[in-house]
């Protein structure tokens, strides 16, 4: 018997299409959710606008003046929206699949389990913040009369993917714990607190409190790289100083994907069905 490789691209396309059709069935809810998400993000913009009324930059001589910092904020929005659109609802659901035993049905399908768990559905309404984030980045560029080089145009999306990969691996590692815990309702809470640390430029992590935190969140839980690296690629002129960090981010992303894949497979081996 010849084994055929499942058509992953076609399956992903079908999931994306079906998710959009489902969301369009409740159009008002879709619009309301999009507006709600953008309102929360909009409040962040108001908050930092207030800060910039009193100071020219976030931190002395950090270079994070108003518009470069807003490019940083735009990157935060874009990365978070990609996570919320593609991964968070599915990894949240993975925990429930384990608890209820519904993972059995996924395991029976002739397709890679991690792929199916990761792309079970797509929350299109979360893309509202993606649009808002891009809008903030473009607006900041216009205000700065700044045009990125072709290399930056290529590197920025690449490092966005690197950042999202690091986030994805982190959440997958956390959600795998559901196999042993039975239930993992704190995934969202943990996610929120982890992203809290990645939402600020590295330069603010100074002093006896900041330096150890900076070390922890660039090595043990390397979430500080997620936004900082792509935002730097775009907002700050490319120079040799940034190369080690950029290279390190790629290594961390590859290692994270590999490790999370290993743990995912290991956790599936330990999975005991909850159904009859």
């Amino acid at each position: 018997m010849q084994h055929q490789k499942p058509p992953y691209a076609a399956i992903f396309w079908t999931v994306a299409r079906n998710s959009l059709i489902r969301e369009m069935t409740f159009r008002v809810n879709f619009i309301a959710h999009s507006i709600a998400l953008m309102s929360w993000t909009g409040l962040q913009l108001v908050f930092y606008n207030i800060i910039f009324q009193f100071r020219d930059s976030i931190g002395k001589d950090t270079g994070w003046t108003r518009y470069p910092f807003f490019m940083f904020l735009g990157t935060v929005m874009v990365v978070n929206s990609l996570m919320q659109t593609f991964f968070m609802p599915n990894l949240r659901e993975f925990s429930e699949m384990i608890r209820k035993g519904n993972l059995d049905f996924v395991l029976l399908k002739p397709i890679d389990t991690q792929f199916l768990v990761t792309f079970n559905r797509i929350d299109w309404s979360s893309m509202a913040n993606f649009a808002l984030g891009l809008g903030v980045i473009v607006y900041s560029m216009i205000q700065m009369h700044y045009m990125p080089t072709p290399l930056q145009f290529v590197l920025f999306p690449f490092y966005l993917l690197v950042g999202v990969s690091i986030y994805y691996s982190t959440v997958l590692l956390m959600s795998c714990s559901s196999v042993w815990m039975g239930r993992n309702q704190s995934l969202d809470q943990l996610w929120f607190y982890i992203t809290t640390f990645s939402r600020y430029p590295m330069e603010i992590y100074q002093g006896s409190l900041g330096v150890p935190i900076r070390w922890i969140f660039t090595t043990v839980f390397p979430v500080l790289l997620v936004v900082n690296v792509p935002a730097r690629v775009l907002a700050k002129p490319l120079d040799m100083d940034q190369l080690p960090l950029a290279g390190y981010a790629v290594l961390v992303a590859i290692a994270g994907l590999f490790l999370s894949r290993m743990l995912f497979k290991f956790s599936l081996n330990k999975y005991r069905s909850a159904s009859s």
Binding site: D56, G59, K60, Y193, T196, Y200, Q206, I213
Partner: peptide, 24 residues
């Protein structure tokens, strides 16, 4: 546990505002 965890963002607030105040 959840009360402890809720204080985590205060760490970033300290760092952020220290940076903001220090910039002026």
């Amino acid at each position: 546990l959840s009360t402890f965890v809720r204080f985590l963002p205060i760490i970033t607030q300290i760092l952020l505002w220290t940076a903001v105040i220090g910039a002026g």
